[in-house]
Design a protein around this nucleic acid. Structure first.
Length: 686
DNA sequence: TTGCCTCGAGATCA
DNA sequence: CTCGAGGCAA
């Protein structure tokens, strides 16, 4: 009946009906998923949903991305594009004890010069994945993972399928809103999912967090749609075009609620750190009963003006801290100790444990760091030990259960000779570390050096993993990184799990790697204390390799961030005949790089970057901005495209801003531009 | 450090 | 079907 009626309707009426249905379904979704208080039966809901689906199918011209029907997932993607966050996603400082939580409060009061109680917003720290959601004109247009904090992966399609994430905001809303929050899988959903998977004979997820992470990484969002994911908003990163301003974090959260976001019901606002600690106790007591997993609580200074006064320390705000619950612990047995030989020959003791499930993962290895650590804890092979996941992830042997010590235990001693190459093991004075003196004659060091050389950030040789390197070195086919370039398809194809095709790919990858940069090459050599940053500094300072090789320690120390120790390492490296031989071999194999062009410009971090300016600039004139950018090697372009590196936004920006946001191009305000210019000039002058 | 996903390719069996 | 590599998150 309904359908027949509709077919006779005019397009305007259909569009209206679709709009009404969408709004109604959005509202029911919100009441059901966020408020947990549905006002219609499931059957009625299904009927509305079906009607909308039918209408959309009959009239594809009215299809829209923010329709609730889109939650079922879109077509599989090839990959997730990388997108820069317009505001970095910072991490939180951790407090692992009541004392360090109190220190946090003390620091704040000293900085703010106040004796008064600080008002804190307290929230559970949900164990999930942080994401950033961008809304324009009230519509969800982008959702991005945290990534390294500066840029993450765009997973908008997957996030759309999460029923508690609003696709449309409830008015009145700001023109632009960027919301930060946590995606997680509720305990009940996790259990149900695993029960279903068990029945189907599919793989089980080990914990809710990993299940959530895995679900978001699906290229096919229709799979994500079937996973019981949920979301809590915990902050506003950006808000533009809104009449109201909020002065506290808790008001922000109220506003988020009004716009339709789920906000955790356990959030509280309290006075003073003691009240925070009480909140912590209370939450810990009901941790088991909570429908989702948490690993601590977060305290945030509620007043936004105070937050701004406090500012940031490197990658974390000074005004917030995560107070973690004590790490879960479990008993295990120390089966043995293995000494791992690193790239520089350092011997690290690693505990082999009877596998034990703790903190959401099965632990069978744990580093013991060094011999001092072993002695302090008096760990012996055969002991029963307490194992936990310290900090966030790294497993550690917390202590020994002396009462359970068997009569037969083996003391742990640093071997006198390298377990791999049998060279002498020597402790350098003033150092905790013991080193194998075998240098590059030690197979372990050879392997590590080769793996480092071929790593992505180094020479980027695809397809050369640990298993292949193991075979190549063990069979004495290669010893040094230079030997890599002598490998032939025939030699490689005989190896385990490496057929003709893989061998060809690897030889291709090797050939491709010959074209590189000076900085990459220097980093690849694996000189002690020379990481990516130092390699760049060296490459910028020295015009060619020969000059660097000849440089003495004093000259090396002239370079930024290179002191006497690093200078000595570099100097020593280039005095080893063996190292020079390897370098000769590499150059002979055809490794080459472009000599830096005009030095001052190519030094600039902005070299080759493309900028687009929009809106009125008042920090400096548009001409000045252009001039400075060009002087730093950047290009200015008029139109925003995928190739644009940054869009600089002044007052009352035009459509370029919207374009930039839809393409995920990083956006700078004037302050950020000034900071970037400053930074670039400094880097250039080095 | 572990767990997860994806891809390409090798191994295995029909 | 299984494995290795590579990327990502906490």
């Amino acid at each position: 009946m309904l359908v027949i009626l509709m077919n006779t309707q005019k397009p305007d009426d259909i569009a209206n009906r679709i709009e009404i249905l969408r709004d109604e379904i959005h509202a029911h979704n919100y009441r059901y998923h966020v408020l947990d208080a549905p006002t219609i039966s499931d059957a009625e809901y299904d009927r509305l949903f079906q009607e909308l689906k039918n209408l959309e199918a009959e009239h594809p011209e009215f299809q829209s991305l923010d329709s609730p029907t889109q939650r079922v997932g879109a077509a599989p993607k090839k990959e997730f594009p990388a997108v820069a966050h317009s505001i970095p996603m910072l991490s939180l400082d951790n407090a692992f004890s009541v004392d360090s939580a109190k220190d946090f409060d003390k620091r704040i009061r000293i900085r703010l010069k106040t004796e008064a109680f600080i008002t804190y917003a307290c929230e559970p720290k949900i164990d999930g994945l942080a994401v950033s959601l961008v809304y324009e004109q009230g519509r969800l247009i982008s959702g991005v993972t945290r990534g390294d904090g500066v840029s993450g992966e765009q997973i908008t399609e997957n996030l759309r399928t999460i029923s508690t994430i609003p696709l449309k905001l409830k008015p009145p809303f700001p023109d632009v809103l960027e919301v930060r929050g946590e995606v997680f899988m509720p305990k009940a959903g996790f259990k149900a999912l695993n029960e279903k998977n068990a029945l189907l004979g599919e793989k089980l997820f080990v914990n809710p967090r990993n299940a959530a992470a895995g679900s978001l990484r699906q290229l096919d969002s229709s799979i994500t749609a079937k996973r019981p994911l949920s979301f809590f908003a915990y902050g506003i990163a950006r808000m533009e075009g809104f009449s109201q301003r909020f002065s506290t974090h808790s008001e922000n959260m109220q506003a988020l609620k009004k716009w339709g976001f789920p906000v955790c019901a356990e959030n509280r606002v309290v006075e003073g750190i003691e009240a925070c600690l009480t909140y912590y106790e209370q939450l810990q007591a009901k941790r088991e009963q909570l429908p989702f997993e948490i690993d601590g609580v977060v305290y945030k200074v509620d007043n936004i003006e105070l937050q701004q006064q406090l500012g940031f320390v490197s990658r974390a705000p000074r005004w917030a801290i995560a107070h973690k619950f004590a790490a879960e612990e479990a008993f295990s047995e120390l089966l043995g100790i293995e000494f791992q030989v690193g790239r520089t020959g350092t011997l690290t003791p690693v505990a082999r444990l009877k596998p034990v499930f703790v903190g959401g993962a099965t632990i069978s290895n744990a580093t013991l760091h060094n011999m001092d650590e072993i002695q302090r804890k008096d760990v012996r092979v055969g002991d029963t030990v307490v194992v936990r996941r310290a900090g966030d992830v790294i497993p550690e042997v917390a202590s020994v259960v002396l009462e359970k010590r068997p009569s037969q235990t083996t003391h742990i001693a640093m071997p006198k000779h390298c377990p791999i190459c049998h060279s002498d093991v020597i402790r350098e004075k003033e150092e905790a570390a013991y080193r194998c003196m075998g240098g590059l004659f030690c197979a372990a060091q050879q392997k590590e050096a080769i793996l480092h050389f071929s790593a992505r950030r180094a020479m980027d040789i695809d397809g050369l993993g640990i298993k292949i390197v193991d075979q190549l070195v063990d069979k004495k086919i290669i010893q040094t990184v230079a030997d890599l370039y002598t490998l032939s398809v025939e030699q490689l194809a005989g190896l385990e799990r490496l057929g003709k095709k893989s061998a060809e790919n690897l030889v291709d990858a090797l050939a491709k790697s010959k074209e590189t940069t000076f900085a990459r090459f220097l980093f690849s050599l694996g000189i002690r204390e020379v990481g990516e940053a130092t390699a760049h500094n060296l490459a910028n300072h020295f015009s060619d390799l020969q000059t660097l090789i000849k440089a003495d320690e004093l000259e090396l120390q002239q370079i930024t961030d290179i002191g006497p120790i690093v200078a000595a390492h570099i100097y020593y490296f280039f005095r080893q005949p063996h190292n020079l031989e390897v370098i000769q071999g590499l150059l002979k194999a055809g490794i080459h790089w472009q000599a830096p062009q005009s030095k001052s410009v190519s030094n600039s971090p902005l070299f080759g970057a493309t900028f687009v300016l929009t809106g009125t600039l008042n920090a400096l004139s548009r001409e000045e901005a252009k001039e400075q950018l060009i002087a730093l090697g950047a290009k200015i372009s008029e139109a925003v495209s995928k190739k644009t590196s940054y869009v600089v936004v002044g007052d009352s920006p035009g459509s370029k801003l919207t374009k930039a946001q839809s393409l995920g191009v990083p956006i700078l305000d004037q302050t950020q531009l000034l900071a970037l210019l400053e930074h670039a000039k400094q880097a250039q002058s080095q």
